[in-house]
Design a binder for these strands. Structure first.
Lengths: 193, 193, 193, 193
DNA sequence: CATGAATGAGCCTTCATTCAT
DNA sequence: AATGAATGAAGGCTCATTCAT
């Protein structure tokens, strides 16, 4: 896992590239490495040296956010109340998806380009799994949802919010509403019919 | 409402084009008009005459399914049990989304190419709205979900199913599970906190 | 030279097509037979039956104007003053070129599509030739300009006017100014140097 | 004014492209970037990188000739005889137009693609303006022609020569004859009527 | 390491012309 | 005669990727 640290100038370029890509993602502009290079004032070759594909770059953009989610997952495990821990975790996850356009494609991708991304995605899924298990064992959650369903469902909510349309400002509120509904369903007893 | 009926040969080509497009959609291949033309054994110009853009063609592919949903919506209104009516309607909608890859993009699109598509989409949304209203008035549904939320939520579930991955065969089952959870949340009393 | 007269409806279509083409020429829109057909509310085939190529149609559009010029040429021959006859003829020619966008391409074309066009072009050139000869013999014109130079020079003036730019309204005035200068040169004694 | 000098290989390609374009222009073949690329043995992208549009390429082709004209204009100002200076300048201009097919479209174009082209065109027009002014003040030229008329008139003569037809060899002679006539008209006193 | 010129497959679109109805 | 659907060559342009400098 030890990566050779980048030379100082290379590191500066790396940062510049990711910063530009971040801007593009926020603007909704599709990531094109040539484009990124031009905007960063760097040669295409340089960008390609750092990121072999647009996906790799996108993963780099998404990484900080994934790290934050993973970290939050760790912390949530310390919460004594299993349901509250789960609820907060899912809330953070959905908020992140709605706020950061880089997350959806990275999360939905079946395979990753950079190993670090896979690690982080696993960490988040794993945290969700543990939190769900704890909540289920505490009786707070219906039994027919697997831990592997959590992240997909959060992606689904984010997608629903996007389909709903509305101004970016309203999105968080909509997301909370959708999540609240789903949580209500999660909490309920197993389907009776 | 009166469209000039197509000449016999033109109609045959129209059908062939849509059929080819249907296949491509099912394969997950992106629709490209030149490609469609080649596979249909027709000139590019012919395809362009019938469908000016890939979106128009995709709408044509999705139309039968949208018609079925709209028709089901009509029928659901006849059901005496408001909750069951809503439940069945949403189930059909989600099943359609999961089964037919043409629906998601058409449903999510903010604007349509063919007027007929807009009509059908409106009919489906409208049916959902009425069904939700009836269910809400009968006390079966929490009050904080608007009718405009229904379709987005169904799209979200379909998306979640796709993120979940799995073989196509398992998808319907997953969709049912996710919908069941959401319905449980819908049915519950308003959030207590 | 006897052409079978068109059936009444065919004649009506012919007129409609030429009228539409006239409009397009005046708008500066390039003549496309498909386009003409659509605007005339006729099938493409019909337009093609009447005019095999865009050039043929353009010639039909230009014909009335060419006829007027040819007729004027005839009349000019009756003028007793050879110089005045020539001057008026050239003035009409330039005015026509500047006013009617269909003339330039038809006049400049090396070969014609419709025999009638060739006849008319010849008639105009011939009239110019005779008028120039008469003027030259009367001593009013320098000897080193051939009759075959007249029409090209008029085209040149029209082109110069167009390069000059300016609003259509000013064009006639500019054309008159350019023609006046050229006529002054024509009238002068043969080059002395 | 400072343009980054091209890399050696890029410069070689630039030259090759312009050379091919020059040939096409001389042949009377319309400039098509794909075509140019093929004939130059280069990728389309390379040609597009150098010249975004056919117009830009055409301007590059015309540039040397425009430079020569502009240079000649400068030199003509040194001639002590105002009329002779003007006469020589116009002769060079017409000869260029008749000889080089790239000039007419570039000169007639209302707007340019490359700034350098605009500069050169302005320089030529400006030289003409000064020469005409001087000649007019010396009494050698009729007063009703503005300096803005010079270039259009030269274009007009070139166009007339082209309409006249004839073998390329005869064109220069024809151009001289037409220019001589026009100059005679220029030199004359204002119209007496 | 950085650069950015070159590449060319690949997609899109138009339009003159033909021909079945 | 009239119609207009079909054709497909032709041309335009982009962009991910490579590689000489």
């Amino acid at each position: 896992m030890t990566t050779t640290p980048l030379r100082k100038d290379a590191a500066r370029n790396w940062d510049r590239i990711v910063a530009v890509a971040r801007t593009l993602v926020d603007e909704g502009t599709p990531l094109q490495l040539n484009d990124v290079a031009r905007r960063a004032g760097l040669g295409v070759g340089t960008v390609y040296r750092h990121f072999a594909t647009p996906e790799a770059l996108l993963e780099a953009v998404a990484t900080p956010c994934l790290e934050a989610l993973a970290a939050h997952g760790e912390r949530a495990l310390a919460d004594a109340d299993p349901w509250r821990a789960l609820e907060t975790f899912l809330t953070r996850t959905v908020e992140a998806q709605v706020t950061d356009a880089s997350l959806a494609p990275v999360t939905a991708a079946a395979t990753d380009t950079v190993p670090r991304t896979t690690e982080l995605k696993n960490a988040v899924w794993e945290a969700g799994a543990v939190l769900l298990d704890r909540a289920r064992r505490s009786g707070a959650v219906r039994p027919d949802l697997a831990s592997a369903d959590l992240v997909p469902l959060m992606c689904g909510i984010a997608y629903a919010v996007q389909v709903r349309g509305r101004a970016p400002a309203d999105r968080i509120e909509t997301a909370h509403r959708y999540l609240a509904t789903l949580l209500e369903g999660l909490r309920a007893a197993p389907p009776t019919r």
